[in-house]
Every structure is written in structure tokens, then in C-alpha cells.
Design a protein around this nucleic acid. Structure first.
Lengths: 212, 212
DNA sequence: TTGACATGGATAGTGTAGCTCTCCAATAGT
DNA sequence: ACTATTGGAGAGCTACACTATCCATGTCAA
């Protein structure tokens, strides 16, 4: 398969594929001569994964590269790789009020402790959780109830997620499932949540039925 | 309060505040003379909300403007406004395979039907749900189990979300809570989910305890 | 074999989003 | 009176994800 066919199959323009090759998102094809390369089905899969992480996951190119580098490690330890790779997929921000952020960090720490969550010392997930908690407070919303309830539900979600990972064959497949499940899972959950919210809102506030 | 104080209070640079004013994210201050305006606490709140929607929610400026315009409607019908405003906060994308997307749409339609969800004909949430389902399939993942399980959990989440909205005082407050709860809620849930995943992964794959 | 077209690779250019800078006359504060 | 700041408008900047152009080398159908 040459680059044109790879482009046809995936719907990604040729110049974009060349760009991904340059950026290391896609491994180089097998060179058959100085200016001819052969691509195969793994390139198709990889390219689709890149597009999905970009379009749905909205991950920056650099993060995707790091993620794929982890995916490509030989003989990976699934838990270890996930601990290193997935935290990179949550964004951080500079909050205006450091005291508020510190308090939020403390709240997150106590949440982790009271639930007995076993977490590595990788700070990024904790950091982003604290940032969101601080954000709630900054707009004057009381996040306390939501935090506990969401934590309960997050535990349940994670059980399903890990089952999703476990069903995949091989370490390689598990890692792929973990990345896909985590990134796309966020979006899937968000979309379903929006629909469930609208349904719940219809029940609560009464239906005007101006549409369906 | 003048612009410099507004900047100090919120940590947002003066030129950025001017930019937000131009873009309609912030209502103009009360003009005391042709080139002097007075800002108050509502501007502080609004500015903080804008920053949070930008930084945590990653919403584009245009979407935030639309959202705030809905928030500012006099005497709003909460359910109606939410139905119009929140779907705008989910992104869409152009998938490569239309047949796959159509199938995903059909799957989402049947999901909605089997659960009896009462949704307006606003297509955006359904569209993004279908896109995510199609994305799972495009990377070769079987989303079927996850879809049902997530839908169950989404219903529970939505109950908490609507309770969060209901506890807020006044229609104005409810709308504010709905926007904050929906946008920040996505991020909060994602952050907690990452932590719960890591904990679950530690339990499942065994702990190397190379950190904590 | 030949000639139109495709290829890998490199470099430069484009479009968009979210700011940031510069300027200006009018005004505030001292 | 005078220095600093203000609201406002326009242009400029930076980062990101492409997209376009070249070019020497290849492929492949006629």
C-alpha cells in the first residue's frame, strides 16, 4: 500500500499523512527504494487512532506522540504504562487564587485517603482534580455533594473500564483498549450524560413538548 | 471599580478584559463619562465564569458568548434554555465513513428509545454520541457493553446533576448551576475517573508499589 | 521505451483562535 | 497643572494543525 491508498482508505489527505510522519505520529513505511515506501494495515489502524484522539479526544499532537510512544514499548507492564501515559491526557491550568487551589488539593487528598485509593505519586491527575474543584469554588458553586457522588460513580465507571481493558487480548491490546477507553470514554460519558440530563430536566421542570 | 481593579481581582490582564468586552463575553461597564466606566461584582463573577469555561471547559469564545447570552435572557424557562444552550458545548467532527456513522446514529436512537429518554429534536447531543460510538468502532473497539453500562451510570449522574441545579436559588441561579455543573462536571468526572481507573488498575494488575 | 503521473522528503506558507501591543484623546487623581 | 490611567479601536503576535510547493527519483500503462 502506498501513501495515496493509505489516504483513500482513511480519508486523511496525503499532505496530512506526511505531516504526521514528520511529527512521529506514524511510523515510517518500509522503504523499497530511496523514495518509495510501503504501508500496511498497521498504518491504517494507527492513522485512525490518531484521528480519533485528535477529533474526539482533542489531544494535542505532542501528547498523542507521547501516548503512542508508550503504546509501542516492547513487553509493556500495563499498569505501569497507564500510570505514566494517561495522566498526560488531562489538562492543567494556572488558577488565579493559590490559596483556593491549595485548599482544593487538600480536599482531593482527603477524598483519596477516605476511599483508600491506591495511586502512584504522579501528580497530574490529582492536580487536575484539584483544579476543577477550585474552579467550582471560584464560580461560587458548592462542589461538596457532587464530589462525593461523582467519586462513587467514578469507582463504578472504572470497574467497567478495567473490564473493557481486561477483555482485550495481549498486553498490546490491553494498552490500546485502555487508551481508547479512557479518551473516548470521557466523550461517550459526556454525551450520554447530556442526554440523560435533558431527560431528567424534562421530568423535573415539566415538558413543554414543543419539539418531540 | 475600574478596569485595573477588575484585572487585579481576577488575575486577568487588562488587554484580555478589553478583548472580552469587544467579543461580548463581558457586558460593558456603566459609563460615567465618554471614556470612563465603572465595573462591579457581577463583572468579577462573569469574568471568573468565562475563565473557567475557557480553561477547564475548553469552550471556544464564540460558544461561551452564546452560552452567556442564554444565561442573560430575562425570565428564562430553565429546561428550554438548557435544551438550547448545553448541546452547543459538545463538539462535532467529520467522520471518514458515513455508513459507520449512520449505523452509530441508529444505535443511539435505539438506546434512547429503549430507555424512554425524553429528548427534544435538537440533534447535537445525539450527533456527538453517535460520533463517539462510530469512533470506537473505527479503532476496532466493541463499544456495546460500555454503551449500556455508561447509559445506566449517566442516568444516575444526571439525577445528581439536576439535584445540583435544583438546589440553586432562582431561575438565574439554576441556569448558572446547570452551565457550571455540566461543563465543569465533565472535567470533574473525568479527573475522578482517571484516579479510580488507576486504583482499579492497581487492584487488577497488581501493585509494583514503586511510588507510594 | 517513453512520457505522464505519483512518491518521499524538505521547506515554506496558511488559517484560526486567543490573546497582546500600540496608539489616541479624554479624564482622574494629586 | 501635570502625570498616570482609561475606554476604545486596530494591528500584531504566538501556537497549532495543517496545506502547498518543489524536486529528484520512481512507477507504470501505452
Amino acid at each position: 500500500m502506498r501513501i495515496a491508498e493509505l489516504s483513500q482508505t482513511t480519508g486523511v489527505p496525503v499532505p496530512t499523512i506526511k505531516y504526521y510522519l514528520r511529527e512521529g505520529l506514524l511510523p515510517a513505511g518500509e522503504l523499497t527504494s530511496p523514495n518509495q515506501a510501503r504501508y500496511d494495515d498497521r498504518h491504517v489502524q494507527r492513522l485512525r487512532l490518531v484521528r480519533v484522539l485528535l477529533d474526539i479526544g482533542r489531544l494535542p499532537i505532542a501528547t498523542i506522540r507521547d501516548l503512542l510512544t508508550e503504546l509501542d514499548r516492547p513487553d509493556p507492564d500495563v499498569h505501569e504504562v497507564l500510570g505514566r501515559a494517561l495522566p498526560a491526557t488531562v489538562g492543567t491550568r494556572e488558577t488565579s487564587d493559590p490559596a483556593m487551589l491549595a485548599a482544593a488539593h487538600e480536599r482531593v487528598r482527603s477524598l483519596i485517603k477516605e476511599r483508600g485509593w491506591l495511586l502512584s505519586d504522579n501528580a497530574r491527575t490529582r492536580q487536575s482534580a484539584a483544579e476543577v474543584v477550585a474552579a467550582f469554588q471560584q464560580v461560587g458553586a458548592d462542589v461538596e455533594h457532587l464530589l462525593e457522588q461523582y467519586a462513587d460513580l467514578a469507582e463504578q465507571i472504572a470497574v467497567h473500564d478495567l473490564r473493557f481493558v481486561a477483555q482485550a487480548g495481549g498486553n498490546e491490546g490491553k494498552l490500546h483498549a485502555a487508551v481508547v477507553g479512557s479518551i473516548l470514554g470521557d466523550s461517550l460519558l459526556a454525551a450520554l450524560r447530556r442526554m440523560a440530563q435533558e431527560h431528567e430536566s424534562a421530568k423535573m421542570f415539566g415538558i413543554r413538548d414543543d419539539s418531540c
